[in-house]
Design a protein around this nucleic acid. Structure first.
Length: 273
DNA sequence: GCGACAG
DNA sequence: ATCTTGTCGC
């Protein structure tokens, strides 16, 4: 391997894959971002209306959740899972679930999670739509961030735009952006004076509001990070998350997580079916 | 140059 | 993401 002169020119002769891929990925994100809608854009309602005349309105009932788990032995083997919960049932019953076992070749790169996971999740959504399931989700919770992202376009946005579906980003860890740090958020959350609610607004140094950190369970110091995905405002997102929070992680993504793990476990040892 | 970096 | 048992508590 001969080294090029130090003059700084190193182009097409040696494809610098990772750098080039990131550049293309950034372009793709910026391109898709033009179709992003960060306000409420759905026909269903979050709660009953008083007027009897309008009882034809559609209430939010089917909330979806997606997640991907990985095999411990084969880190490229993954199981994508889509679940749908009926939030009108008192027990948040799971009315639909589907799995997609795949081998992923795209690596995880912070800020580019969608290029690794979105194809799998999209397939699950398209499969469900093709089968004309009556439970197709009215809104989808994604295990990953929405606009809480270096370029304001995380996995939840990516998936929402491509599927043209309202989505909400649910992060279990903070992706440091715009001066936001995990320790800073923790301090803020532990300080009661800033807690008018059970969540705090994540406003960065620039003043932009990226989402909220919410203590979804009374006993949990560690918050979850909610951000706008697509076609759902932050306020609506918070409301919907609260409606589905039994534990720290809201049920849709929690069930997707649990079931994808279970699926992998059953299909790496036993040979059922 | 060094650290940070969703899942 | 994954490696991992018990354990403190409602």
């Amino acid at each position: 391997m001969e080294k090029a002169p130090e003059t700084g020119i190193e182009e097409s002769s040696s494809p610098n894959t990772s750098q080039d891929d990131h550049k293309q990925w950034i372009e793709a994100q910026d391109d898709l971002k033009r179709r992003l809608i960060t306000e409420d854009d759905f026909s269903w309602k979050l709660s009953e209306q008083n007027e009897e005349e309008e009882k034809q309105e559609v209430l939010l009932r089917y909330v979806g959740g997606v997640d991907i788990s990985f095999s411990k032995e084969d880190t490229s083997v993954a199981c994508g899972t889509l679940v749908v919960l009926d939030i009108q049932s008192q027990d948040l019953r799971v009315v639909y679930h589907d799995y997609y076992l795949v081998t992923l070749t795209v690596p995880y790169v912070p800020g580019f999670l969608a290029f690794r996971e979105a194809p799998v999740l999209l397939e699950l959504l398209e499969r469900m739509k093709k089968n004309a399931s009556p439970f197709y989700p009215q809104v989808l919770m994604v295990d990953g961030n929405g606009i809480l992202h270096p370029r304001g376009f995380g996995l939840a946005c990516h998936l929402g735009v491509l599927a043209d579906l309202p989505t909400i980003g649910i992060g279990k860890n903070l992706h440091h952006v715009d001066g936001l740090t995990y320790s800073g958020v923790r301090q803020l959350i532990e300080t009661k004076e800033n807690c008018t609610e059970d969540f705090i607004t994540l406003s960065g140094c620039s003043g932009k509001i990226w989402g909220v950190a919410m203590r979804s369970t009374k006993g949990s110091l560690k918050p979850i990070f909610i951000s706008v995905g697509h076609r759902v405002s932050l306020d609506a997102a918070i409301t919907i998350v609260k409606m589905t929070c039994r534990y720290r992680v809201p049920e849709p993504t929690r069930q997707a997580d649990i079931r994808s793990r279970e699926y992998l476990r059953k299909h790496q040892t036993g040979m059922s079916e």
